[in-house]
Nucleic acid binder design. Sequence first.
DNA 1: ATTCGTTTCAATCAATCGTTTTAATCATCT
DNA 2: AGATGATTAAAACGATTGATTGAAACGAAT
Lengths: 215, 215
Amino acid sequence: MLIESVATRGKVLKAAERLFGQHGFSGTSLRQITKEAGTNLAAVNYHFGSKEDLYREVLLQRVRPLNEERLMLLTQAEQLAGDQPLPLRAILDAFIRPVLGLATDRMPGRLAFLRLISRDLADPQPFLFTEMAREFDPLVKRYTQALAQTLPGLPAVDLFWRMQFTTGALLYAAAHQHDFERISSGLWQADDVEGCVRRLVDYCTAGFGAPRSAA
Amino acid sequence: MLIESVATRGKVLKAAERLFGQHGFSGTSLRQITKEAGTNLAAVNYHFGSKEDLYREVLLQRVRPLNEERLMLLTQAEQLAGDQPLPLRAILDAFIRPVLGLATDRMPGRLAFLRLISRDLADPQPFLFTEMAREFDPLVKRYTQALAQTLPGLPAVDLFWRMQFTTGALLYAAAHQHDFERISSGLWQADDVEGCVRRLVDYCTAGFGAPRSAA
DNA sequence: ATTCGTTTCAATCAATCGTTTTAATCATCT
DNA sequence: AGATGATTAAAACGATTGATTGAAACGAAT
């Protein structure tokens, strides 16, 4: 049939995103997921094939549009700059904003996804590793190129490391945004996403522009 | 008896550290651990009580001396500075070096631990959360205080966020050090720990000292 | 040599896991 | 209404999980 029931499939995806994000791949059972989704256990294998396929679907469904947006913002910034080199801050803003911006939407599932993607990078599932690497490859290539043009004096190895540091800071901030509201003793509120983006961009821009100290 | 067999207990700890680091808490079975350790399944419950107790032991055994060293280095730096405020770079070096320095020792178990601690912060086991928080509390307090003295103009909320960014960059770098050797296309070698420390300290020092941009 | 507490081992427990099977239910079209 | 294919539901599969048991093996002291 052309018409396929998108209802239960969506409910399973939503529950899976939340539970995978909270307890990880092996820490979440299909029975938990289908129970929370209000469907039958067999729905997972019917709609997705297997537990691994469900996990893959949950991740890629979010990662693909997210990275597309990050590439699109970089392209926009390049067009805006014309033939001049991009300002460092503009590059990092395009890199960071879409990730943290996920939290602006009030949809709770997206917050679960931030935990999930952070967890999966700290704990890559082997069956998904190559697929995820392929998904992130164009992003890394384009941003590396843009940063190298803006920072022509920076050795390649330092550029490499600073991208890793930025990624780490970004993922950690994204995954723990909500815990921070609780442990910052009232200093910060979770709905201030713009403040979070600005602070991280400030930090990373300075970090990327740091002088290279003597060895 | 005063004499207790430390042999099997140690072998179990070592295998558990490696496997928990690679596959996580729920992704690792006691049978995998005891098989790799070359002992019997019942050894875990005999020596540690339960799977959760084993996990707790693996983590705390490493975290405690690690954080003690980080506090000790901060104290040393303070004594060296006398009554003058600490240089920002000295604070961050003391914060970062012991963590990345774990990789200098060629013991493979320590590399497994870096993955493990990074994973546990991305995926805190509920039964261990309060204990881990208590373990990190004095560290956070002392370093927050030192940083506030060195950066008197920085608002508390910005100081808070920059500590989180630094933590994220540090953990990500520590956990992926060895993958980086493979994906950096020859730019970096895993035994260059000093280069890694220097680069991260450069980056974070500049990040902490960044001007606060307009909102 | 014998006793005693410590440690190891194989065997087994109930519970839960992902997956599959089979039947019932639903929506849609002739 | 009846037929057809898509979807849901209940039940069961074998495998694996953490934990426990009781007996065997060990080392040290008498």
